[in-house]
Amino acid sequence: MSLYAPVIGLIIIAALFAVGSVVVSTVVGPKRYNRARLDSYECGVEPTPQPVGGGRFPIKYYLTAMTFIIFDIEIIFLYPWAVRFDQLGVFGFLAMVTFIVLISVPFVYEWRRGGLDWD
């Protein structure tokens, strides 16, 4: 049985965390329902009045968010390279150049297709 101890432990912790946070928030949290609270959470976008036939959100915010993620992830890869710059040498340098070029391709695409024009 000890074989499964880590797995069972993990399952228990995960279950406790998931169920616990729901329970705790309903028990501890204030129960003041208002319109804003019942609205779906939309990543900071001002909830728009729902038109007939289901809600559609402006896509601009998501484009910006995705652009952010592109550069965000770029940093994650750049950082270790910067730490080991000496040892990685020319290979590392060229690899990073390639990487940055590739990263800029979707950026170029977004720019050319008008993704950066706010209106």
Partner: peptide, 9 residues
């Protein structure tokens, strides 16, 4: 990747 650039240019 070139295909994406074609879309752009």
């Amino acid at each position: 990747v070139i295909g994406v650039l074609i879309e752009a240019f």
